[in-house]
């Protein structure tokens, strides 16, 4: 292209060719960014569309009544969100359930962040603390969060506190371990450089340890929030009246599979969106390191 532009074209046909190429290129240039975005969305949509198609065909061929076709779920989702179709207990109740679950997820998650990040920073920095806490933490870590369910119901009763506790437990370890790892992987040279520049003691945390460990901390936050959304469903199956997990539970007892699938889809989308929020914060705070962008 550029060679064609630079060398004078001897024949009219060649110059015409060059001109049309040029026009084509400028069209492409104008829309190349948007085109790439559309391409990406289209590529990402192929699998979900195929899955929905398969679902539809599967329901038709088997003639099952246990699983509703996609259309019926779509109607249910509309009714769940805006009401006006079935006018039952679940009509237009999405905002309530959604908000309750979001509060619990973020409540448990933030509690985990507030405890795990400082603790991870300290453990990563002070070998004494590590020697003291590592055995206990390593023993508790393999216990599945769901195994805590009975105890948590005894501690916190049948209610939102229990759900928040489970979310907290699930988010705590990935954040803690990644934070420790982040602190450990800070280049010693940076501590030496900081010390030489007159940065000491607690200043080191703010000026070196935290920024240097940010990539790994964010890794932990993403994992932690992912687990939080998984565990909210478990937490809300313990008999709380509201929340997306409770809706799925109700759907099961009422044999309303369309409601169950609706709840699953809403949780999937919300979890995805809240991950995007963290990714946005990640890319903003790590603008110094393009390699850590998601």
């Amino acid at each position: 292209m550029s060679i064609q532009e630079l060398t004078p074209s001897p024949t009219p046909s060649a110059s015409q060719q060059a001109q049309s190429d040029k026009a084509a290129q400028s069209v492409q240039l104008l829309s190349s960014a948007t085109r790439r975005k559309i391409n990406k969305v289209a590529l990402g949509a192929i699998v979900p569309v195929c899955l929905i198609l398969l679902w539809e065909l599967g329901v038709r061929w088997t003639g099952t009544r246990l699983i509703p076709p996609p259309y019926q779920v779509a109607v249910m989702m509309w009714d769940f969100a805006f009401g006006g179709i079935y006018d039952d207990a679940f009509s237009a109740s999405l905002p309530t359930h959604f908000w309750v679950s979001v509060q619990r997820v973020y409540g448990g998650f933030l509690l985990a962040v507030v405890l795990a990040v400082p603790l991870g920073l300290m453990i990563g920095r002070f070998p004494l603390l590590k020697a003291m806490l590592d055995p206990t933490l390593s023993l508790l870590r393999p216990v599945p969060v769901t195994a805590w369910l009975p105890l948590s119901m005894i501690f916190f009763g049948l209610g939102p506190k229990s759900a928040i506790f489970l979310v907290f437990l699930g988010a705590f370890y990935p954040i803690l371990l990644n934070t420790i790892f982040g602190v450990k992987s800070v280049d010693d040279k940076l501590f030496e450089a900081a010390a030489m520049l007159g940065c000491n003691g607690s200043q080191l945390f703010r000026s070196v340890v935290i920024p240097a460990a940010t990539p790994q901390i964010f890794n932990g936050l993403r994992l932690g929030l992912g687990f939080a959304w998984i565990l909210i469903v478990v937490g809300e199956m313990t008999g709380v009246p509201e929340g997306l997990g409770a809706v799925i539970m109700d759907g099961r007892t009422l044999s309303r599979t369309d409601l169950v699938i609706t709840g699953m889809i809403v949780i999937g989308i919300t979890g995805f969106l809240s991950d995007r929020l963290i990714v946005l914060a990640n890319n903003y705070l790590l603008k110094w390191s393009p390699q850590h962008h998601v």
Partner: peptide, 21 residues
């Protein structure tokens, strides 16, 4: 006694703070 601002070290691998401009 330890590093101090009176002695400035320039390292071979720079040791700049990558998160700072």
């Amino acid at each position: 006694k330890g590093p101090g601002p009176d002695r400035g070290m320039v390292f071979q691998d720079y040791a700049l703070f990558p998160w700072l401009t």
